[in-house]
Design a binder for these strands. Sequence first.
DNA 1: GTGGGTGGTTACCCCGAGGTGAGCGAGCAG
DNA 2: CTGCTCGCTCACCTCGGGGTAACCACCCAC
Lengths: 111, 111
Amino acid sequence: MAVTRRPGAHECGIAAAMSVIDGKWKVSLLWTLEQRPRRFGELRRLLPGVSEKVLAAQLRELETDGIVHREVYDEVPPRVEYSLTALGQGLNAALEPLGKWGTKHLLPDSA
Amino acid sequence: MAVTRRPGAHECGIAAAMSVIDGKWKVSLLWTLEQRPRRFGELRRLLPGVSEKVLAAQLRELETDGIVHREVYDEVPPRVEYSLTALGQGLNAALEPLGKWGTKHLLPDSA
DNA sequence: GTGGGTGGTTACCCCGAGGTGAGCGAGCAG
DNA sequence: CTGCTCGCTCACCTCGGGGTAACCACCCAC
């Protein structure tokens, strides 16, 4: 999203958080990994429309931001598992109010 | 950000909320208007770097989403005031946890 | 008449996020 | 030998969000 960072009470924190979840698929990844660790191909199947390139890129960004953990199993065929770190779980929790707000005010049809 | 919307518990609410705050300056606008209503030129001065075109566009989007209220005073020179609606204040409140999280985990230097 | 400040709109351009398709290295099935 | 899976990486292209600058109508001060 390239959110603008400006000095100021809450906003810089917001901007920092936004920069972490900035990416077309990152929030989806967050919620998907919240349920349980997933393999690469599994994520690809769970997020219809994502390209391998972007999936790999956003997973790496989340990894370098300390949000997800990447575990490589030296097998054949290769296996890689992605999971949420404690930081990632905290981020997900911090996103919940926003989700509730959206569900309540923007999706009046949902249960 | 063009966040992907997918069916699923929280996520669709998140995606809906993200689509509302999607725009380089919208979060800044939210926090700026939280303090008090502001005029167009005032916002322009408070958000250094924003172009008039984009400022106007994002204000209109926030208006059509019911987040900000646009009040035109028929004076000369013309005066227009933007303020947060109740919905906008709710959105800001829903963003607070994210801001706290960002401040805590991404800005260790801040007080 | 000229300049300034108000709140915009419009045309044009740029850049980067993201999509597409190919290739890759290892190993097993046939 | 061929093909398939898995987890990527690379080159290429598209598309649209956002920046730039010009322009508009209105009125006042000089």
